[in-house]
Design a protein around this nucleic acid. Structure first.
Lengths: 174, 174
DNA sequence: TAATTATTACCGAACGTTCGTTTATTTATT
DNA sequence: AATAAATAAACGAACGTTCGGTAATAATTA
């Protein structure tokens, strides 16, 4: 899939860091050919990459968190989605990567983060946490998710990410 | 201070995102003049910015964490340093910003993160936590620090950072 | 102290390179 | 034949960098 190849580049070097040469190489196309698919240029590529990622995340992470059913099962399903989305902590988060460059993605990033927190909060509430505590747990869960990605990348180890996956149930359930 | 002005630019737009024009403007100098102070160019500027920041961090955060004395007092002093270092969550972490671009700073970033975790671990151990648990608490504290910065930036609010400052004592003490 | 030399700090202008993008043309598909 | 997909070549603009020279400051000499 073309979008996914582009996504890997953006997630590795960020928006400004991704040159059209790199993107073309990753796509297996010439730079000019990318402009046939994305007349809007680099910004459109990044936007579509972000949209696709957010769609996947909504389907495989948010939806399990928000659906009906046993909270523990829903959380495990979401954690599976998270693990896949970040490749075990090896791939950076687009929200972090695109958020660094203040640009046309700021609003979408903000909405996505809020949606994640809201989904975590619903799960925690469904698991029996009082509303206020569920909100704090949700924010802390999102914080640990993002932080573990930073640490995993900075340390060159996937263990912080894995530890975070193990700790989220304690945080959000019961 | 010249270095601090450059630091603000790097922390705002990252390494690749920072152009020499922006850096020169922030410094109140011409581009050519920056090459008088930094013959090594942009890379040397970033390296010196990183070194200066790490020195400040070591002095005002790591040292309180590792010194002798009451753990609660030491932590509060460190939290004060952290709050100042990140301007209440408004300024990004150089470890995150420079870590995005895989480059000549990777090793220094790794060492700095490990030093922070080690300092947190020593504090938690001094506060009475058994060694193994102190290590986990320390990693979790570093994770929440970095994560709260991502969230604060992404959401455009300082509250995640502030909440993190409030939660660290619970995490590391007792 | 005054004049002179070194040294440092800074700047305008240009360098070659790479950036994102466009145009014109060829190849593939239907 | 017509439409879509891919490309080679080139574009202006911005990039990081270099260079020659000018102001300012310090050191040295007389």
């Amino acid at each position: 899939m073309l979008i996914e190849r582009l996504s890997l580049v953006f997630r590795e070097v960020g928006y400004t860091g991704a040159s059209l040469g790199m993107l073309a190489d990753a796509a297996g196309l010439q730079k000019a050919s990318l402009y046939h698919r994305f007349p809007g240029g680099k910004q459109q590529m990044a936007g579509q990459v972000l949209d696709t990622a957010l769609d996947w995340f909504a389907e495989n992470v948010l939806r399990p968190l928000e659906r009906e059913g046993d909270p523990r099962e829903r959380l495990f399903e979401a954690l599976l989605g998270i693990d896949g989305f970040y490749a075990g902590g090896a791939r950076a988060c687009l929200l972090n990567v695109f958020g660094a460059d203040e640009g046309p993605f700021t609003l979408r990033i903000k909405d996505a983060l809020n949606a994640l927190i809201a989904a975590f909060a619903k799960l925690a509430a469904d698991a029996g946490q009082p509303a206020e505590r569920a909100g704090r747990s949700a924010e802390r869960a999102a914080t640990m998710l993002q932080g573990s990605l930073v640490l995993s990348r900075g340390l060159g180890t996937q263990t912080p990410f894995r530890n975070m996956l193990l700790e989220l149930p304690r945080e959000l359930l019961k």
